[in-house]
Design a protein around this nucleic acid. Structure first.
Length: 580
DNA sequence: GCCGTTTTCGGCCCGACTGTTTTCAGTCG
């Protein structure tokens, strides 16, 4: 059994115990256990198999034994018994916003609902509204949540897709009959969610390659298999397509299947204007035209042949990239290797799972020069938010730790993710904030304010001279929770006026501010900070997703403050305050 | 179920918001 599967089982045990109204602290222990397993920096299942898990905080005797059972037998008797009568579909109910264990219990016992589909049926029939504790507004809310889920059904976040994509790419690259390989589609374009994965290979043996592809271990079922194309369903429900073309066709197919559809429509029109016809097989002169067939060896040659500079896949959304590429080279988009540090990260001081030292170690391991800590403030009780006393103590500890880094090659910046309260005031007063290196201000409560009020609230926070940057501007959780009502354009204006940096929260759940707004922000001179919002050492690697979103937002290293070297970034953090 | 300069059983995270109620339960962060 893999660690990921064990994590799911612990999480489900917690859900089932909630349903059975077990001791809440016992439930929490399973949740903590799931987190520890998920974030463990090593082959935890191998250790579990050999009974070598002693000493790990959060995994006591009972959980260690369960992990051992899972590692050795591939199952867990305790869990099997607990979940008797509950299908896999049942657990999806816990993902519906507005529905918790108590309500699920009542619905299950009264109507026998055991899936999201069941829930929809009884909500629509009017039966639910008659239940004690439920009412018409509850039903409306539930139906809204269900509609949101349906709109995004069959979509996957980056973290659900990227590891698989890389794994499969790696396998295809090793295939002896494959000469060129790429992923295409919206994944290649860096979209925040995708509904499938498209792979493209160049080969002289398409049939053989397709046969091998449908046989890889990640495949659960084959949806279709032909001479040059196959569609499969992976174990996690993700659809995956493979197309096999000749080496000569490869650049055209790659361009075509990368899209977007709108980008390609404009491109094909442009080709026609030049007497050429572009499709997934080639770029040929149209009948009667005296244009010469361009030589195309790779994708870039197609753009060149059409009088365009290179257009990165992330920019192919038909939002002005073709018009600009006609006149000049497009901006050199930021790359992962450009990042020099990361802000907005959590530790065990609030709701993170790792210590300051462990986070700093991992940051250095990733080749970064600095790490910004920003634990939660006191209003975020659920996240063990810090009050002023604890915060200042943490600052002291950070300063002490910094003194141990020889030669000043690495630095931890002491910050806070301070809650923006309902009226736009902050959770700490200026006297406290003034003692920090930087401040991230974020909304964590009162999501339902009307747009005007929410916008005013956020802008008020940005007007505070100590607020260096604004955290996750819309509060969205991809595929799960829509953004709250806020006028982003107005927020961008205010950021420009106050000199406040806007965060690009790199968590694959958030990717907030959305890439669609960055072009505007950049035009207004607003700077971006790509923030992993890491709650564990591994979470720091979410900068991978942040970079993809930043590229999609046309950002270059000059737009992003954490591309600045340590020697310059300090000064930049203080710029807003000093300019007043 | 886990943890401990309390080493062995008691403590472990709390307030806002919403909708359903008429004093509070459930959900969320």
């Amino acid at each position: 059994m893999t660690a990921t599967e064990a994590v799911t089982i612990f999480e489900r045990i917690a859900l089932l115990m909630e349903l059975k109204e077990e001791n809440p602290f016992k439930i929490r222990a399973y949740r903590t256990g799931a987190e520890v397993v998920e974030n463990f920096p090593g082959p935890i299942m191998q250790l579990a198999e050999k009974n070598e898990l002693a000493g790990i905080k959060g995994l006591g005797e009972a959980l260690r034994d369960k992990l051992h059972e899972m590692a050795t037998t591939g199952g867990l008797g305790f869990y099997d018994k607990l979940r008797e009568g509950f299908s896999d579909d049942f657990f999806e109910l816990f993902e519906v916003q507005g529905l918790g264990p108590k309500k699920i219990k009542v619905l299950h016992e009264t109507f026998g609902i055991s899936s999201v589909a069941d829930l929809k049926r009884v909500c629509e029939s009017g039966e639910v509204a008659k239940l004690a504790g439920f009412g018409s507004k509850t039903v409306v809310k539930l139906l809204e949540s269900l509609a949101f889920r349906e709109t995004h059904a069959q979509e996957f976040r980056g973290d659900q897709v990227a590891p698989l994509a890389e794994e499969i790419l790696g396998m295809l690259r090793l295939h002896p009959e494959i000469t060129r390989v790429s992923v295409a589609g919206s994944y290649r374009r860096g979209k925040e969610t995708v509904h499938d994965l498209d792979f493209l290979v160049a080969t002289r043996e398409p049939k053989l390659v397709i046969e091998d592809f449908v046989g890889i271990p990640q495949v659960q079922s084959i949806l279709g298999q032909g001479e040059t194309k196959a569609s499969v369903l992976l174990r996690n429900g993700l659809q995956c397509d493979l197309r096999a073309v000749s080496n000569a066709q490869f650049p055209f197919a790659l361009q075509y299947f990368t899209g977007s559809k709108e980008h390609n429509v404009t491109l094909r029109q442009r080709a026609l204007d030049r007497g050429l016809s572009l499709n997934e097989y080639g770029l040929k002169p149209v009948e009667g035209s005296n244009t010469v067939e361009p030589e195309v060896m790779e994708e870039g040659d197609i753009y060149r042949a059409l009088g365009l500079s290179w257009i990165e896949p992330e920019l192919r959304e038909n939002s002005g990239e073709i018009q600009l590429a006609e006149k000049q080279p497009l901006p050199k988009l930021v790359e992962l290797s450009n990042l020099r540090g990361v802000f907005h990260n959590h530790t065990t001081w609030s709701d993170g799972v790792a210590s300051l030292e462990a986070m700093a170690e991992e940051a250095q391991e990733l080749g970064l020069q600095y790490l910004g800590i920003a634990d939660h403030s006191k209003s975020s009780f659920q996240a063990n938010g810090l009050d002023a006393v604890r915060l200042l103590k943490q600052v002291e500890e950070i300063r002490a730790l910094n003194a141990t880094y020889d030669g000043g090659h690495f630095k931890i910046f002491a910050g806070s993710e301070v809650d923006i309260l309902k009226d736009g005031s902050l959770d700490f007063d200026d006297e406290v904030l003034s003692q920090l290196d930087y401040v991230v201000a974020s909304v964590h409560a009162s999501f339902t304010l009307p747009e005007a009020e929410m916008t005013k609230r956020i802008i008020k926070a940005m007007e505070n001279p100590y607020v260096t940057m604004l955290g996750h501007v819309s509060g969205r959780l991809l595929l799960q929770r829509p953004p709250y009502a806020v006028d982003i354009a107005a927020v961008i204006e205010a950021a420009a006026a106050t000199g406040t940096i806007i965060e690009l929260n790199a968590s694959p759940w958030r990717l907030d501010m959305d890439w669609r707004w960055w072009k505007l922000a950049k035009e207004k001179g607003v700077k971006c900070s790509i923030n992993p919002d890491a709650h564990s050492p591994r979470g720091l690697q979410d900068i991978f997703y942040g970079i993809r979103a930043a590229r999609k937002g046309w950002l270059t290293r000059e737009d992003i403050i954490n591309c600045l070297p340590l020697s310059k970034v300090d000064e930049f953090l203080r710029a807003k305050f000093l300019s007043r």
